[in-house]
Write a protein that binds this DNA or RNA. Structure first.
Lengths: 249, 249
DNA sequence: CGCGGTTTTGAGAATCCTCAAAACCAGTGG
DNA sequence: CCACTGGTTTTGAGGATTCTCAAAACCGCG
């Protein structure tokens, strides 16, 4: 079920993610420090739980490969997905900075994570203000994404919500250069979509089918593939905001 | 409509908020720096807009008095309230750290805000890692609150949502010592509640009435007063997490 | 071929929505 | 003191959306 610690594959200096154009470059000194800050790598199989609500993880992670999602549960088992984690995203900050996790994280596809020690965070803040600022930046961005998703669940209707979510995820994947070739699929089931949209599985299915029939998306390879990005954003009444460079830890 | 800059009333060292037991104490040095970091005070009348989506504010605020709320709008005017701002909360971090605001902030009651300059943030990060850490802490907490609200809007049903929201706000107010005397009212209209819960005004009204008829709350003085906190949390399936001390900027 | 997970379909029911109007209430000016 | 006004709360009614239940179809994999 779960993955485990893997032999370290990437030196931070040669991190294949870090060099992508969307990410901010670090100074030599910072890069070197990050290399020391990094304490290992973690692999997680599809479906594995990376972080658990209610626990206090001693780690902080940067996603290197794969997709994951953050979620919360109600006592009776109803699940709400809060956001997705893609390469470059930082997860576990809440438990690092506060008492304990208030949400869980699960792998949507096989993931490779970069592991940092919570204990060293204080040292980082003391000696690398630029990196500290980056962490705050990433926290602010995460909040921004949840805000946007909140608007969607609270005020958009089913078709708009579905269109927004798919466009949003597609855009994030494209932004970090995840597609390369046209036609990659977002690795999720309709149950995941339902739990993100705040809808039932049945109604989600019927809604998605409308998008498929309108030839805006395909559903295949165990996921969702976008055909008409513009049309989706139009239905959702949403325009992606184009960040310049952004930090990565 | 809007308020304006007021004569500075509070020295940070004598800030009546800061001394409340819930807030973490600062060192002498930090307190002194905050005093310099603070560039003034802002008052906002009830209904005034403090921050506007799409703009880039040069300021960052800590709420000293009063209630406010963060919200987003869809192109056609539908509104979703994301969270509320109470004394001790930091607002405007998104615009300070990133390009521009992705949400607006409006005063629910007359507010008094402590103003900080965005430009000095870099200096703060460089010289006061403890304060930088506090800012990250506050950002993580804000995200946590939106997460919780997201769970509510996505997965709870109307009555549960209303119970959760009221209990949540009541708990926050009590935590910062806002009630003193029993029986304060949360200063909001049912339209605000509707826009927070992701429900229509009419349905919100009928839902609230059920809570009133069950004698769990009162609706008066232009707001909501809690009678049976425990019962509300029970309906919502929610338990407030009790933070220890927390930072305030 | 069989199995578990996922998607699809149908149908009736509950929730929630919109429209519309009335009641209520606090503040304002006569 | 009272009428007027604008904002807020309340009520009713019909309709749309979304839900639950249940079963079938589909699909990749061992």
């Amino acid at each position: 079920m779960t993955g485990g610690m893997a032999a370290r594959r990437y030196e931070c200096g040669k991190c294949p993610l870090r060099t992508r154009p969307i990410f901010r470059e670090l100074t030599e000194k910072e890069l070197c420090y990050i290399g020391r800050f990094k304490s290992g790598e973690l692999t997680a199989d599809k479906g594995a739980t990376v972080l658990v609500e209610g626990t206090h993880s001693p780690h902080l992670y940067t996603v290197l490969q794969g997709w994951g999602f953050r979620y919360k549960l109600l006592p009776d088992g109803r699940r709400q997905i809060l956001n997705y984690a893609l390469p470059g995203d930082l997860i576990g900050l809440q438990s690092a900075v506060m008492e304990e996790m208030q949400h869980s994280v699960e792998a949507l596809s096989p993931m490779l994570l970069c592991v940092f020690e919570r204990d060293q965070l204080e040292d980082l803040y003391r000696n690398y203000p630029g990196l500290a600022y980056d962490i705050t930046w990433l926290a602010a961005r995460e909040e921004q994404m949840v805000d946007e998703n909140m608007l969607s669940v609270g005020r958009r209707k089913a078709l708009e919500r579905a269109a927004y979510l798919i466009a949003f995820l597609h855009h994030r994947a494209v932004t970090i250069g995840l597609d390369a070739r046209r036609g990659f699929a977002i690795p999720m089931t309709q149950q995941h979509m339902a739990d993100t949209l705040g809808l039932s599985l049945v109604h989600t299915n019927k809604t998605i089918r409308r998008l498929i029939n309108a030839r805006l998306i395909l559903w295949r390879d165990g996921g969702c593939q976008v055909l008409e990005f513009e049309k989706l954003t139009e239905i959702a009444g949403w325009a992606p905001d184009l960040h310049e460079k952004r930090p990565i830890l």
